[in-house]
C-alpha cells in the first residue's frame, strides 16, 4: 500500500509533476506517430514505421487503461466520503493520485475529491489549498468541478477566518449558473460570511425565499443559517422574529454545539455551555 500524503502541499506538487510528465509523454507519443506517418513514405525502403506505430499504439493503450483505472479509483472515493468512510476514501484517493496517468482528468478528479475529503474531515487549511490548486489548473471538459470546488474553497476559508479570500471565492460563483443544491450550499456560506462581516441588511434581504431554501439543507447547515438569520433579526430590532428562527435552529442542533462552532451565537444563547461539536 502506498503511504498517504502527509500534507496538501505534497499532494499538490505530486499532481503537478504528474500532469507535466503525463502531457509530455502524451505529446511525445502523438508527435512520434505523426513523424512516422510523415517520414515513412519519404525514406527510401521504409524504416519499419508500421511496427513503430503498432508499438506506440500498444503503449498508448496500456497508459490509457492505467489512466482509466485512476479515474475509477478517484470517482469511487465519492460515495465513501458521503457515507463517512474517510479512511477507505483516503486509501483509494492515495492510490489514484500516486498512480501514473496520461490524461489530466484522473489527476484533477482525484485532487477535487481529496479537497472534498479534507473538507469533510474539517481539515480546512488543506481543503482550501487543494481547492485553490485545482482552480488554477485548466479544467477543460471538467469545468463542472469548478463550482463545487469554489464552494469548498469559500467555506474552508471562512472556517479559517480568511474573510477576504472567502469573498473572492464567493464572487466568482455569482456569475455562474448553479443547480439547486449548489444554490443551497452557496446560501449557507454567503449567510455565514455576511453575518460575520455584520452586513445585517444583506443577511435579511429576500429572507422568505432564503428560509425556503434553508429547508433543503442538512441539519447542521440549516441550524447555522437560521441562527445567522436570528442574530441579524435581533440586531435589526425584530426580537419576535429572531426568537422564532432561534427556536427553529435549536430544534435542529443543540445550542451548545452551535455556540461552539460559531462563538458569535453566544449572543443568542448566552447560557449554552460551549462543548466541542461532535467529530464528523
Amino acid at each position: 500500500m502506498t503511504p498517504p500524503f502527509a500534507s496538501a502541499t505534497t499532494a499538490i506538487s505530486r499532481v503537478r509533476r504528474d500532469l507535466t510528465i503525463g502531457s509530455l509523454l502524451k505529446w511525445l507519443i502523438l508527435g512520434g506517430a505523426g513523424l512516422v506517418i510523415l517520414l515513412e513514405p519519404i525514406v527510401q525502403g521504409g524504416f519499419g514505421g508500421t511496427f513503430i506505430l503498432m508499438g506506440l499504439g500498444v503503449v498508448w493503450f496500456v497508459l490509457s487503461a492505467r489512466s482509466a483505472r485512476g479515474t475509477q479509483l478517484a470517482v469511487g472515493a465519492s460515495p465513501l466520503i458521503a457515507t463517512g468512510q474517510f479512511d477507505a476514501a483516503e486509501v483509494q484517493l492515495n492510490e489514484a493520485l500516486q498512480s501514473f496517468s496520461i490524461f489530466r482528468g484522473a489527476k484533477l478528479i482525484g485532487l477535487h475529491h481529496l479537497a472534498v475529503l479534507r473538507h469533510a474531515q474539517r481539515r480546512f487549511t488543506d481543503a482550501a489549498a487543494l481547492s485553490r490548486a485545482l482552480l488554477t489548473q485548466r479544467l477543460g471538459t471538467l469545468e463542472s468541478l469548478s463550482k463545487p470546488t469554489r464552494l469548498i474553497l469559500a467555506e474552508s476559508l471562512l472556517e479559517t477566518d480568511d474573510l477576504r479570500g472567502a469573498y473572492e471565492a464567493l464572487s466568482g460563483l455569482y456569475k455562474m449558473r448553479l443547480t439547486l443544491n449548489e444554490a443551497v450550499a452557496l446560501l449557507a456560506i454567503q449567510t455565514d460570511y455576511t453575518t460575520r462581516t455584520g452586513a445585517w441588511a444583506e443577511v435579511l434581504s429576500g429572507l422568505e425565499s432564503k428560509l425556503q431554501l434553508c429547508e433543503l439543507m442538512p441539519s447542521d447547515r440549516a441550524a447555522k443559517t437560521l441562527s445567522c438569520f436570528a442574530l441579524a433579526l435581533k440586531k435589526t430590532g425584530r426580537p419576535a422574529d429572531a426568537l422564532l428562527q432561534q427556536r427553529r435552529a435549536e430544534l435542529l442542533v443543540a445550542p451548545a454545539e452551535l455556540v461552539a462552532s460559531r462563538p458569535m451565537f453566544k449572543e443568542l444563547w448566552p447560557d449554552a455551555s460551549s462543548v466541542p461539536p461532535p467529530s464528523k
Binding site: M217, S219, L251, L252, A254
Partner: peptide, 16 residues
C-alpha cells in the same frame, strides 16, 4: 432525539 436531529434536517418536524 440526537440521532433524529443529526439525520433528518427539517424532517425532524415529522417526528415532533
Amino acid at each position: 432525539l440526537p440521532q433524529l436531529r443529526r439525520h433528518l434536517g427539517f424532517r425532524i418536524g415529522d417526528a415532533w
